[in-house]
Amino acid sequence: MKLSANIRRMRKEKGLTQEQVAQALGVTAPAVNKWERGASCPDLALLAPLARLLGTDLNSLLSFREELTGDEIARMTGELYEIAQAEGIDSAFRWAEARRQEWPGCDSLAVSLSMTLNGLLFTLAVEEPEPYRRRLGELNEALADSEDRDVRDQALHLLIGRHMEREEYGRAEELLGQLSDRWPYRDSLKAGLLRRTGRTEEAAELWERHLLNAATECYEALVSLQELALRAGELEAGRRLTALITETAERYAMPPGTAPAGRLQQAVAERDRDGALSALRALVEGLNQPWDDGGLYPHLNGGDATPVGAVLLPGMVKSIREDEELSFLRDDPELEAILAPFAPPDGTHRP
């Protein structure tokens, strides 16, 4: 971590303003601001007084060794858990603070310790957790300004949960806007905030989208796994995955035309004419049907009777006719009977 980030983080942890630091060191507030932005550095003569003011030492302030490995951090959080179980939460907090003082420039360690301590407050059923939560809040406020995006997101997550618990919804929403789009729990936090603030329709729509996206991701993973299994000649594994693909598409009311994908891949691998034709018929006919979401996605579907995949059909038909893996069906009149109603406008097809 850079000196500028260290000064900013340690100042916030001590609860000092830039003006207070400036006054204590006999410099101006803009000078401190420049230190924290990395636009300039403190004079050498100021480093020792600055370290004392921030409650640290020169080695820590200057971060001569900046980071720990992931394994080292995991071992420390594991040891923290064991100390909490054996000696109690107060000992755990003291031990964590000592590790932070030892590695002040390692934000990854700090946020891992914070998350572990936050969980321990719950699992140990601490009778008076508020003083500990305040200490964690101060740490997380500092970490929310970290240069490391993952650390920043983890700290913000903890802060948002804290503010929601205290019904400080305005501040929670403000912090929510600072989370990166890649944080996997962003939508969950947002939906929880919407629900708590009475915006239930928005929360429901968000959860429906989350469910459909998760189902789609699971479906795509199963289709890809089946493809890999079939390429390796593992037909029995392909059959098991076919059942899972169909079940996933039906259980989570995915848009029509998705369920037959596994059946089609399996039939092509086995050169099963009847199975392939049946799957193709279900696929193209499904794409020409309205989406029956089974009541799972009313805020997304809205009862629209328009066939969701109709716009895809001409291109889909052309792709099926040109797919070399389906060449064993190329001259089959039943295939043409299935595709003809949905053919591209120019009517092109294989003889």
Score class of each variant (00 low, 15 high):
Tyr297Gly: 03
Pro314Leu: 04
Leu113Asn: 02
Glu168Arg: 09
Leu194Ile: 06
Leu109Tyr: 00
Glu13Gly: 02
Ala215Tyr: 09
Asp293Cys: 06
Gly15Arg: 05
Ser63Asp: 15
Glu217Asn: 15
Glu138Thr: 12
Tyr169Cys: 11
Leu211Asn: 08
Glu205Leu: 13
Glu87Asn: 15
Pro290Asp: 10
Ser146Val: 09
Thr246Gln: 15
Phe93Asn: 03
Cys106Asp: 14
Lys12Asp: 06
Gly275Tyr: 06
Glu66Lys: 05
Ala203Pro: 03
Glu322Gly: 10
Arg186Val: 15
Asn33Trp: 04
Tyr297Ile: 02
Ala48Cys: 07
Arg37Glu: 04
Cys106Thr: 01
Gly303Pro: 05
Ala243Cys: 02
Ala155Lys: 03
Pro290His: 04
Asp323Gln: 10
Leu54Lys: 08
Ala155Asp: 11
Met164Phe: 08
Gln154Gly: 10
Arg133Val: 11
Gln266Val: 14
Leu3Asp: 05
Glu127Trp: 04
Asn288Ala: 13
Arg135Gly: 12
Leu335Ala: 02
Gln178Pro: 08
Arg273Leu: 04
Pro104Gly: 06
Thr200Arg: 09
Ile89Gln: 06
Glu67Lys: 08
Glu79Arg: 13
Glu202Cys: 02
Met316Arg: 11
His349Val: 00
Ala261Cys: 08
Met76Glu: 14
Pro351Gly: 09
Ala249Lys: 00
Ala229Lys: 09
Arg321Ser: 07
Asp107Met: 12
Ser224Met: 12
Ala74Val: 13
Ala221Asp: 15
Arg209Val: 09
Val32Asp: 03
Glu247Ile: 04
Asp332Ser: 07
Arg99Val: 08
Glu205Lys: 13
Leu50Met: 03
Ile160Asp: 11
Asp274Arg: 15
Arg9Ile: 04
Arg11Cys: 01
Gln23Pro: 04
Leu244Pro: 13
Gly105Cys: 08
Ala172Trp: 02
Pro42Tyr: 03
Leu80Gln: 00
Arg239Gly: 01
Lys14Met: 00
Ser63Asn: 14
Met316Ser: 10
Val27Asp: 01
Gly137Gln: 14
Asn301Lys: 13
Gly294Arg: 09
Leu121Glu: 11
Pro341Asp: 10
Ala96Gln: 03
Gly286Ile: 02
Gln226Gly: 10
Leu159Gln: 14
Glu220Asp: 02
Tyr297Ser: 01
Asp71Ile: 13
Leu193Pro: 12
Pro351Ile: 03
Ala74Pro: 09
Pro333Ala: 01
Ser91Ala: 13
Leu264Arg: 09
Asp71His: 11
Leu326Ser: 05
Trp103Ala: 05
Val223Arg: 10
Gly55His: 10
Val27Phe: 02
Pro129Tyr: 02
Gly119Leu: 12
Gly295Val: 13
Arg8Pro: 00
Cys218Gly: 12
Leu211Glu: 13
Gln154Pro: 00
His299Asp: 08
His349Tyr: 04
Glu220Phe: 07
Thr216Ala: 07
Arg11Ser: 01
Val308Met: 15
Arg240Lys: 15
Asp150Tyr: 04
Leu277Phe: 04
Asp274Tyr: 07
Leu121Phe: 08
Pro49Ala: 11
Val317Ala: 01
Ala48Met: 15
Thr77Lys: 08
Ala125Phe: 11
Gly302Asn: 12
Ala45Lys: 10
Trp207Met: 15
Ala261Thr: 15
Gly294Thr: 07
Thr123Leu: 06
Gly192Leu: 00
Phe342Glu: 11
